[in-house]
Design a binder for these strands. Structure first.
Lengths: 212, 212
DNA sequence: GAATTTTTCTATAGGTCAATAGATGGAATT
DNA sequence: AATTCCATCTATTGACCTATAGAAAAATTC
């Protein structure tokens, strides 16, 4: 009775094998020209297939955007939540958060870029859904900063909201210049961390020894 | 011979009186929907005139974008150059630069936003021209930071390029959230300055008295 | 108030693009 | 070998959008 009866046992598993490639091409094209500036023809050209053939993989251009955006955020939020809830001082967790926030640029630059720049063009419902993830991520950063302030690790006279927006703005901007500059992500993350924690200015008292 | 002969002395000065309004409407619409996502009909609707009437003010949608972008950068570069060449320590000038970079958001938010997000869609020539201005501005920040490092005002172990990109990313991102958050620009600038100069972390030695 | 100039309008041409329908060829399955 | 399934193709529709042409209206000047 509990037998589900797979009507065709040796079936499926083959369906839409190229789907990941198709979405990656869409990501590349959307990243380069923007959602509305890109045509489905552009995506097809990038793949060497006909425009109409794309519709075997997605039912609308907007859905393609949604799939790209999803790959652009997926992981971000989960990873952030794990770090925020994990061990370590607020300072240590903030460092991990910044690293984790930048690392998807290594292998998913186009997806991240599209998520950041084009999500506003998603249809209302998916935009709201994805917006919730974004706000969740802001929240994670903000809570860690607040905790650091409460525990005396960070200065107490900060506006944690402004600090959050500053840090995220800084990190997110990297998606647009990471290609041109040739600095590896871990290096960028390291510089950002030092800037965020210690700032540009020399400490008033004697210079502390620097790591590395 | 040198008489230019103004054929109609009491002439001109009336032409295209509404041009600034038209461009402002374009800025608003481009900021909201993006260049390719916006139609000339949208702009006309925002003004309460007919779509074709816009072409009395600009000869193509792309030219409208260029006019908006120009208003988005104009002043930025000049003001930055004056500050960089002016008096004061590197630290003081960096503070002025950050303030000056954020202040256009007060009365030209849409123009700045369009410049930042849509300039990629300008036709090749004007894109290059405007790109030169952008790079000039990066240069100004970078030079002040380098000077501060050389003079011992800033830490010497910074990567000035990374610091520049971090600061500009942080400031530019404000154009996208300034509307939602309700913090006044001078307040935002103040918070950013403290973060950039001193960082989040408490100084290792005893706490210095904070301004304000 | 007639003439001229400026601004806006109607109408439409011409192009581009997303999306659908149905055919075709090849691979896997029986 | 026949059948079923997967992927891509050709052809086309219908909507939308920029830009032009020329008429009408409103404002300004003489």
């Amino acid at each position: 009775m509990t037998v589900v009866s797979l009507s065709s046992p040796r079936r499926a598993a083959n369906q839409r094998r190229r789907a990941p490639q198709i979405i990656e091409a869409a990501a590349r094209v959307f990243a380069e020209r923007g959602f509305h500036g890109a045509t489905t023809q552009d995506i097809a050209d990038a793949l060497g297939i006909r425009q109409a053939s794309l519709y075997y993989y997605f039912s609308s251009k907007e859905l393609a955007l949604e799939l790209v955006c999803l790959k652009g955020v997926e992981g971000f939020f989960e990873a952030g939540k794990a770090i925020a809830a994990g061990l370590g001082s607020a300072r240590e967790r903030l460092i991990l958060l910044i690293n984790s926030h930048l690392s998807p640029l290594i292998d998913r630059r186009d997806f991240v870029k599209v998520f950041l720049n084009e999500r506003q063009h998603l249809p209302a419902e998916s935009r709201r859904r994805i917006g919730r993830w974004s706000r969740g991520l802001e929240r994670i950063f903000e809570d860690v900063i607040k905790e650091g302030m409460a525990k005396g690790e960070f200065r107490a006279d900060l506006d944690p909201r402004m600090a959050t927006l500053a840090i995220l703005g800084m990190c997110n901007a990297a998606s647009s210049w990471y290609r041109k500059e040739n600095a590896p992500i871990p290096y960028i993350a390291g510089e950002f961390v030092r800037l965020v924690i210690d700032g540009l200015g020399k400490p008033a008292a004697k210079r502390r020894p620097r790591r590395r």
